[in-house]
Write a protein that binds this DNA or RNA. Structure first.
Length: 578
RNA sequence: CGGGGCGUAGCGCAGCCUGGUUAGCGCGCCUGCCUUGGGAGCAGGAGGUCGGAGGUUCGAAUCCUCUCGCCCCGACCA
């Protein structure tokens, strides 16, 4: 690859509409250009990076026994109606009607299509297990596309679907994918973590998210320092409160005036107590009805846990007006006693004694409230968000909260789709059974963005070697010197022969320009051929990541560099079960 | 969807409040000279329906209305 022949429109200045690092650098380094909101052109280098990720994904998927196919982007509404998702899926699903008035949509995912294909073509347990995948462009009409490739509307995704004859077999398929994902992200040279996750709208019984660790990540992860437990905030389990100990005397309920005190902080300060002695009553709109959730004053409700407990489709905090309309109580003074709506409680609340609650009357709270005596709850469960003060639910170890970017998500689906769409096979007894499915996604284009979020400095991108668009860039400095040009050409050819992906910066530019561009686009290794070569026959090889530099003679330089690169790649391809 | 902001040369911006002749600046681009180890210098040059439509006015990038596009924040703690 010759720099002068490739479209790499680098930018000196920061584009005004790019906020996050990866977006800014992808634009500046000439990897992408925006076509319209959330939709990007991939320029040669951007595409090269994506291809590198794709290649690793393909190799590991194939190794795990999956087969590649390609499904259409346009899908008929009929299939989505069969699965029930035509109604369930929100406006993210871009729907349209073709000239024959057939309802269609752009595929945000392919469960329906693959299930349809498999039910038509696969009929026997002898054909199982089956794992099919594709790497394809997806379209999701995001509410607010942002952050460049991080949350685009159109993006490249690898999605795989497994079909098994039994639940146990499906677990094996799931585990195989989990292992494959570990290998994939390891081989990409990324620092990542697999966490327990909620299954969300895709449904199914359990799932893991693969998170690239980066301070700028949108998601918060909970990682145990002592054991292997890791989960995202939505899912992260909280240790049940330690029971036993001295049971305090239940004090008499007492109504106290708390004029104008609505927030936990205001109430507790006014009453001279700590937030741990107060229970707040949060009201949620759960599939159209109101539900009150009790959590300790210093805790926060985790809506996804609530959603799962109630088996709800949609859960959101109810607005003040609505709460007042139904309960007749202004927010801030709500309490569980005599409340006209369903009340559920976080497990922590059940262990509390003599706490403060709202009195269901403006400007009043109740002291020394107790569950059972003063009010009852319909259900209680772990409904709150973990904090760094909590201990690991599994081993009691110290928890750490850190941020990450979701790049992969695997689900065990069970028979949700196969049952809805009547996708069955005959088992060994000749009985029709629905397939047990799993689905496994990787945001390929997002991996590139996440890699940059995780690996960059003030000069630009620092690509992990395995997914860099090119591995080595050669900078001949001084176009006038025939010796330099010749040496650069020779090295370029030799590296090519060694199977190294190399770019020759053959532009007639001043050194500074070449250095800046090489840094910006993040090429892992840079070879400079300049003055020292003319004088001493030495060239300089510098590693982008840490600036480590070695000067070496031309002879053997290509082999040496190729050796370094091969060793570095091999070191990442560690693998095996997790 | 709600709130805020921005659309002026390929990119980044000024000008707009307080209307007035040829609409500026930096980067980039083209030509020439010069320069060559961290985004050089000099000289010359090309490039604009000021997002679009309508209106006010003698006169609109500037004021008004509508419209399109884009960006940011929010859509969580009583």
């Amino acid at each position: 690859m010759r720099y002068s022949k490739v479209l790499i429109p680098t930018l000196k200045e920061n584009p005004s509409d790019a906020e996050v690092v990866s977006h800014r650098l992808l634009l500046r380094a000439g990897f992408i250009r925006k076509l319209t909101s959330g939709v990007y052109n991939y320029l040669p280098l951007g595409l090269a990076a994506i291809r590198k990720v794709e290649r690793i994904v393909r190799e590991e998927m194939n190794r795990a026994g999956a087969q590649e196919l390609l499904m259409p982007m346009v899908q008929p509404a009929d299939l989505w109606k069969e699965s029930g998702r035509w109604e369930q899926y929100g406006p993210e699903l871009l729907r349209f009607t073709d000239r024959h008035e057939h309802e269609s949509c752009l595929g945000p995912t392919h469960e329906e299509v693959i299930t349809d294909l498999v039910r038509r073509e696969v009929h026997s347990y002898r054909d199982l297990p089956l794992n099919l995948y594709q790497i394809q462009t997806k379209f999701r009409d995001e509410i607010r596309p942002r952050f460049g490739l991080m949350r685009g509307r159109e993006f490249v995704m690898k999605d795989a679907y497994s079909f098994d004859a039994s639940d146990q077999d499906a677990d094996v398929s799931y585990q195989a994918m989990r292992d494959a994902y570990h290998r994939i992200f390891s081989r990409c040279g990324l620092s990542f973590r697999a966490v327990e996750a909620d299954t969300g709208s895709i449904g199914g019984s359990f799932s893991h998210e693969f998170m690239v660790l980066a301070a700028t990540g949108e998601d918060t992860l909970v990682i145990c320092q002592a054991c292997s437990y890791a989960a995202n905030m939505e899912k992260a389990r909280v240790r049940p409160p330690a029971g036993g100990g001295d049971e305090p005397v239940l004090l008499a309920l007492e109504r106290v005036e708390t004029p104008g005190k609505r927030k936990v902080e205001a109430v507790t300060e006014f009453l001279g107590i700590s937030p741990q002695q107060l229970v707040k009553t949060m009201v949620y709109l759960v599939d159209g009805r109101l539900v009150a959730v009790l959590v300790r004053g210093d805790h926060e409700v985790q809506p996804v846990k609530l959603k799962n407990l109630l088996g709800a489709v949609e859960v959101e905090l109810a607005d003040d007006d609505r709460v007042f309309a139904v309960t007749g109580v202004p927010t801030g003074y709500l309490g569980p006693q005599g409340l006209a709506i369903e009340v559920v409680a976080d497990q922590e609340v059940m262990a509390m004694r003599n706490f403060v609650i709202g009195a269901n009357e403006k400007n009043f709270h109740l002291k020394n409230a107790n569950v059972g005596r003063d009010f009852s709850v319909a259900q209680s469960a772990d409904l709150r968000q973990v904090t760094e003060q909590d201990r690991c639910a599994v081993c009691g170890g110290q928890l750490e909260l850190t941020r990450g970017i979701e790049v992969g998500h695997i689900f065990k689906l069970g028979d949700k789709y196969s049952r809805a769409m009547q996708a069955t096979f005959q088992d060994s007894e000749g009985v029709e059974q629905p397939f047990v499915m799993g689905c496994y996604g990787i945001g390929v284009s997002r991996v590139v963005a996440a890699a940059i979020e995780q690996n960059h400095d003030e000069h630009g991108i620092i690509f992990p070697l395995p997914i860099a668009p090119v591995q080595v860039v050669i900078l001949p400095l001084g176009a006038k010197e025939a010796a330099i040009t010749t040496a650069a050409e020779t090295l370029y050819e030799e590296l090519g022969r060694q199977g190294i992906e190399v770019m020759l910066d053959d532009r007639d530019e001043r050194p500074g320009v070449k250095f800046k561009d090489a840094d910006l686009i993040g090429v892992p290794y840079r070879v400079t051929i300049g003055k020292r070569f003319v004088q001493e026959g030495l060239i300089e090889c510098r590693r982008r990541r840490d600036g480590q530099t070695e000067t070496l003679p031309m002879t053997g330089a290509a082999e040496h560099l190729a050796g370094l690169i091969r060793a570095e790649l091999a070191a990442l391809a560690v693998p095996g079960r997790v």
